[in-house]
Design a binder for these strands. Structure first.
Length: 104
DNA sequence: CCTATGACTGCAA
DNA sequence: TTTGCAGCCATAG
């Protein structure tokens, strides 16, 4: 891996993303911070948007700080299915952050 | 170089 | 609880 790649924003985001365990979620802000961008929540979303539709990375484990999905339909429904399939439940359209938020 | 644009946030009202 | 908005920051034009 070239030095340029490990400093690439997307690569850093992906590395953290890949470490999120199934059944857990993180916020955009968390993802960015863990990748070295303390205030890069929007940046995280911008990078996730670049991922190919068929990526193997767990992009669906990233939700907003309100415990809601920030994706427009119909992607949001797909994301909700993926999360529910790995045990993350929704209550009144929201995810219980205290219960599922992942912190190393 | 400068402005616009978001899969965002936290806080004030 | 909901809404509005300034702050944020790499990217794109």
């Amino acid at each position: 891996m070239s030095e340029e790649e490990i400093n690439n924003t997307l690569a850093r985001i992906c590395r953290v993303l890949a470490s999120i365990p199934s059944g857990h979620v993180v916020t955009y802000g968390d993802l960015a911070a863990m990748a070295g961008f303390p205030k890069g929540a929007r940046l995280a979303g911008q990078q996730l948007r670049k991922l190919p539709k068929d990526t193997k990375l767990p992009w669906h484990r990233v939700i907003n700080a309100q415990g809601r999905l920030s994706l427009p339909e119909p992607r949001a429904s797909y994301q909700r299915e993926l999360l529910q399939s790995e045990g993350v439940s929704f209550l009144k359209g929201r995810i219980d952050m205290a219960k599922y938020r992942w912190r190393p």
